[in-house]
Amino acid sequence: MSPPAAASRPPRPATVTIAFWLQLAVVLVLLGLAALTVAQAVHFDGQIDRAVRLVPDGASDDPR
């Protein structure tokens, strides 16, 4: 039985390797930004809840 044909492949071009690592870096940056966005949304939601608790129940500008 002969070895697989992979041994006779030419080497991978450097541009392919660079493109792979750049794409991986972009994915990691975007995942980090998504995580940061979620963290900020949770924090902002907490701030809204805190502001609602600070305002008395009858302190609305709505005359109804």
Rank of each mutant, 00 (worst) to 15 (best):
G58H: 03
G32Y: 11
L22A: 13
Q40Y: 12
D62W: 09
R53S: 11
P63T: 00
H43N: 13
L54F: 09
T37I: 02
P11L: 00
M1R: 13
V52A: 06
L31D: 03
R12G: 10
G32P: 07
M1C: 11
F20T: 06
A51N: 08
L54K: 13
P13L: 00
T15I: 06
I18G: 03
V27R: 07
F20Q: 04
P63W: 01
D62C: 01
A59H: 14
V29H: 08
R64S: 04
G32L: 00
D62H: 05
S8E: 12
F20E: 05
F44K: 11
S8H: 12
P13C: 00
L33G: 07
D62R: 08
R53T: 09
L22K: 13
R64A: 06
V42G: 01
M1Q: 12
P56H: 05
A41M: 06
R64E: 03
V29N: 03
T37G: 05
S8V: 05
G46W: 04
M1K: 13
T15A: 09
P56R: 07
R50W: 13
L33K: 08
L30N: 03
V16G: 01
A5H: 13
R9D: 14
L30Y: 10
P4W: 07
R50A: 14
P63H: 00
S60I: 04
A5R: 12
L36A: 12
G32T: 05
W21Y: 15
G46T: 03
A34T: 10
P56G: 09
P56W: 02
P63S: 00
Q23K: 11
V38P: 01
D45F: 08
L36H: 12
R9L: 14
P13R: 00
I48M: 01
V42K: 02
D57W: 05
P63Y: 01
F44N: 13
R53P: 04
A35P: 02
L30G: 01
S2R: 15
T37P: 01
P11F: 01
G46N: 04
D57E: 14
H43S: 11
P56I: 00
V26F: 14
A7Y: 15
G46M: 01
D57L: 08
A34H: 07
L30V: 07
P10G: 01
R12V: 15
L54Y: 08
S2A: 15
G32R: 02
D57I: 05
R64P: 02
A51Q: 09
A25R: 07
A39R: 11
L54I: 03
A5G: 10
Q47F: 09
T37E: 07
P13Y: 00
T15G: 08
A6K: 13
A7R: 14
G46L: 00
L33W: 15
A39L: 03
D61C: 06
T15Y: 07
D62E: 04
D62F: 07
R50Y: 11
L28H: 10
T17P: 05
V16N: 04
A6D: 15
R50V: 04
D49G: 12
V26D: 05
A25T: 06
L22W: 14
L36V: 10
A39S: 09
L33H: 10
T15V: 13
